[in-house]
């Protein structure tokens, strides 16, 4: 991670600040490192680059529920608003067992069609997230088949200007093929299943040029037979300028590893260059 950040800082003087997109339109960073909402990857690519610009952004997210704490930090590159590359590292504290699970996620996303705001049809993107669990012992002991897996998703998103009483409404729908248990932190596959297509939906309303509120729903498989639940959140995101965004959310992660009613708070910061 440190090497990646240093490398990124070395590259910064070579590029100029990308600011071609309208404020807030790239969304924020989701927990697996892609541009999106908090939980769901969106069709938008990270950062403010348009067709002839490139952009770099970095983020850190902390999500704490009753028995677990997730820290996710990463970086994103946007090449000409066509390709997004991302890396995130997740550390997941299992408080009752005083142990930490970690995984690395390498992501790529290609914008296939459209523009969030202007095209007739929603912006459409195809993405992959390759995940490698570096602490697989717990996952294997729970019945997971693999310590790595690749999620493939298609995402479509649209911002409707003035749709709701003059307020802008943004929605995103993603369909993800995944074998991951608890997004990969509990390994991949299991005796109950080994790969499924799940739906993920986000809706947001912009209250002004700088502030958005919204909600997300992320369907998840239950490969391990541990009553793994779908995830939900309700969020508020603040975009004071094109250099930084901040998100706070109330999250409901349901049952994780047999421990029910995991609710709590989520905070995320993204910086853009």
């Amino acid at each position: 991670m440190f090497r990646l950040i240093s490398f990124t800082l070395l590259l910064l003087p070579l590029c100029c600040l990308a600011n071609g997109k309208i404020l807030a339109t790239p969304g924020v960073s989701q927990i697996e490192g892609s541009a999106g909402g908090g939980l769901v990857p969106w069709a938008q690519l990270a950062g403010y680059a348009t067709e002839d610009e490139w952009a770099i952004s970095g983020f850190c997210t902390q999500a704490n529920v009753d028995d677990f704490e997730l820290t996710s930090c990463g970086i994103q590159g946007n090449l000409y608003d066509r390709i997004e590359l991302s890396y995130a590292t997740q550390n997941f504290d299992v408080l009752p067992l005083s142990l930490k699970l970690s995984q690395d996620i390498y992501g790529a996303k290609v914008r296939l069609y459209g523009d969030l705001v202007y095209s007739d049809w929603p912006q459409l993107s195809l993405g992959v997230q390759y995940k490698k669990l570096t602490t697989p012992d717990i996952a294997y002991s729970l019945g997971a088949k693999d310590d790595n897996g690749t999620d493939i998703y298609i995402a479509m998103s649209k911002l409707h200007l003035g749709l709701l009483a003059g307020y802008n409404v943004l929605w995103n729908a993603s369909f993800r093929y995944t074998t991951a248990n608890e997004i990969g932190l509990l390994g991949f596959g299991g005796t109950n299943g080994n790969g499924a297509i799940n739906a993920e939906v986000s809706v947001a309303v912009l209250l002004n040029n700088h502030l958005a509120i919204g909600t997300e729903y992320r369907q998840k498989p239950d490969n391990l037979g541990l009553k793994e639940d779908d995830w939900h959140d309700i969020f508020i995101a603040w975009f004071p300028n094109k250099h930084v965004s901040m998100t706070a959310a109330y999250i409901n992660l349901g049952t994780i590893a047999g421990l029910p009613d995991q609710t709590g708070w989520y905070f995320s910061l993204t910086g853009y260059y």
């Binding site: 709701l164 003059g166 307020y167 309303v205 729903y217 939900h232 959140d233 109330y250 409901n252």
Partner: peptide, 20 residues
């Protein structure tokens, strides 16, 4: 989810009020 839906509706209806 049970808690999130009412909260969302509440926020949306708050926006709806401004449509007057």
């Amino acid at each position: 989810m049970k808690r999130i839906i009412p909260l969302t509706l509440c926020l949306l209806s708050f926006l709806g009020c401004s449509s007057k």
